[in-house]
């Protein structure tokens, strides 16, 4: 086929794809490189050093970062776990519950946190906690995170369950397994890749959230993003680049894990 009629290739599209990837990765790569800068200034490069990584753990701001990290990780762990359980249970009803009236409505409700702009969700949650008289703090952050993590956990779980034919459970029940047994011993193990993938995505989304957390956190309770935002507001510092690089690496590792787990096929 000549280049003129090769309908799959357009001049410049390959270049623009590389431009796209360059734009997506350049800022991250630059920050990663500069996080290893020995200089206390963020402008001049003075050679390779792990100094600012040490500073994150032992420097003057280390106490703040440590408390924020404990909050962030414990909230992400609890919120992702609960969101995954809730999402698995909802997916079972929606994918394996036949057709019923509230099915579409339930799907709409689950996608709601994805459709409403995050800042609106943040305002609404803050107003809700205020109206019911909850004191803002750790618990309010946790409750808000559970809610907006549900759709992120739900999507890979639903996708996985749709890929599993119900003949496996039918076979188990033909052999006198109860429904509960068929679910626990047959469907759940087959679903595991979807569930793990959903959990990991929910975990990252919770760990990354800034806007909603910023609204519903009380004074003095910080998560990593709100602590980083507070520091950045006073100017970019090298220790922020180090802590950002660590979070960035963690997100990439978890997404990669989620990707490969969701690809595994354990139905054979």
């Amino acid at each position: 086929m000549s280049a003129k009629t090769d309908v799959k290739n357009y001049t410049g599209f390959r270049t623009l794809t590389f431009v796209c990837l360059f734009i997506l990765y350049a800022p991250l790569v630059v920050v990663t490189i500069y996080s290893f800068n020995a200089s206390p200034s963020i402008t001049v490069w003075e050679g390779f050093s792990l100094r600012w990584y040490g500073d994150v753990f032992t420097g003057p701001e280390s106490g703040k970062f440590k408390a924020a990290a404990i909050n962030s990780f414990s909230i992400a762990l609890i919120a992702a776990t609960l969101a995954t359980i809730i999402a698995t249970s909802a997916a079972t009803a929606i994918v394996r519950g036949g057709i019923f009236k509230t099915r579409t409505l339930s799907l709409g409700l689950i996608s709601l946190p994805l459709m409403v702009p995050e800042i609106v969700l943040a305002v609404a949650t803050l107003i809700f906690f205020n109206a019911v008289g909850f004191t803002r703090g750790y618990m309010t952050i946790l409750v808000a995170h559970i809610a907006f993590c549900i759709p992120f956990a739900y999507l890979p779980i639903q996708a996985r369950m749709q890929g599993i034919e119900d003949t496996y459970e039918q076979a188990a029940m033909d052999l006198y397994a109860t429904k509960a047994q068929a679910f626990r011993r047959v469907l759940l193990p087959l679903m595991m890749p979807g569930i793990i993938s959903g959990f990991l995505l929910a975990f990252i989304v919770s760990l990354d959230d800034f806007i909603i957390t910023n609204f519903v956190k009380g004074a003095g309770v910080e998560t990593l993003p709100t602590a980083i935002f507070g520091s950045v507001k006073q100017g970019l510092k090298p220790n922020i680049m180090a802590i950002s690089t660590m979070l960035l690496a963690l997100s990439i590792v978890m997404v990669t894990l989620s990707y490969f787990v969701s690809k595994t096929d354990n139905t054979k």
Binding site: V31, I228, I240, S251, I252
Partner: peptide
């Protein structure tokens, strides 16, 4: 999937 705050700061 990388933190939006970190990307914006970058």
């Amino acid at each position: 999937w990388v933190n939006l705050l970190i990307r914006t700061v970058s």
